[in-house]
Amino acid sequence: MIGTSTVSTDIAQAAPPRGRRRRFSQLSRRDKTVLFVMVGIPAFIHIALVWVPALLTAILSFMKWDNVRPVDTAEAVGFRNYWEIFTIFDNQLFPALFNNLVLIVWLFLCSAVGILLAYLLDKNLKGTRVYQSIYYFPVVLSVAVVGFIWKSVMFNRDAGLLNILWPGDPIDFVGDQSKLFEFNLPLLDFPLGLSTNFAALLVAMAWRHIGYIMVLYLAGLKSFDPSLREAASIDGCNEWQTFRRVVFPGLKPINVVVAVITVIEALRAYDIVAALSEPRGTEVMGTLVTNSLTGEGGGYAGRGSAFGMVLFLLCIGFIIWYVINNFRERDA
C-alpha cells in the first residue's frame, strides 16, 4: 500500500517499524552537534519566552506589585493574593470556575457532535467538500468578527435575529444574568448556577468548536485503515457497533488530542466572552486573569498572577494527563 510519489496516508497505513530508532551514541561528533543545535535553538526560544515568564508569574503571585513601577518595588506578601481571591473575590472566582466547568462539559458534547459530523462526512457523500467548508467556516473567522456577529446580529435584545424569531417576550441574551438553575455550596454565601447570558454564549462557542473538532477528526478518519472497517461489517457489526468497537478505539491517539483540546479550550476560553463585553454572569477564568494583568485597571499584578496560577494549575493537570497518555507508550 505504500505510495510511491508522496508520503501521505498510504505510508501512514504501513505501521512503522518500532524500536529501530537510531541510537544517538552511534552518530559522529559533527552529527551530534548538528542535532544539538537543531533542538537547542527552538528550545532556547521556547523556554525563554514561555516557561521563564510562566515561572516569573508564579513568583509574582506571591508579591504585591502595580505592573508599572520598577519591579524592585514589588514586595512579598506570602499567600495573601490567594487568600484574597478565594475569600474576598469569591463572588468572581467561583462563578468563573463554575462557568469553566460548564464549558468543559459543554465542549465535550460539542466535540461529540463534531465527531459525528466527521464520521458522516467520511462517507464521501455528494457535496462533502461543501459541508466540510461550511462547518469549518467559523473557525477561520477572527474573534472580533465572531463577537460582532453574535452580539450585534444574533443576540441583540431589541433587533437581534434570535429575538425576532422568538415568539415570546424578548430575551436579553447578552445581559441577562438570572440563573437558569442554581444550587448552593456549603462554604459560599451565594448560589452558583448557569446564567442565561452564559447559556447564550455557549451557543456561539459551539458554532466555532464543532467545526474545529470535525476537521481534526476527519483527518484521523481519513487515515484509518478501511479494511478494518470492512472486516467489522463482515463480522456482522452494525454501523454503531463498528464505530464504537473498531473505529473509535483505533483512533485512540486522536481521541486523546481531541479531549485535551476540548479541555484546554474550555479552560482558556476568553476571547468570545470579551468580545461580548463580558457582562456579569459570563465571567470565566480567562477574563479574570486578563483584566487583572493587562487592563488599564491592571495595577494588581499579584492578584492577577494568583488568578493566573489557578488557571495554570488546572491546565497543567490536564497537560500532564495528556502527556502521560500520549508519550508513555510510544517512546518507551
Partner: peptide, 13 residues
C-alpha cells in the same frame, strides 16, 4: 427592561 445587555447606542435609538 433588560438594561445590562443594551448598548448605549441602542438606548439612544
Amino acid at each position: 427592561p433588560d438594561v445590562n445587555g443594551r448598548t448605549w447606542q441602542d438606548a439612544a435609538t
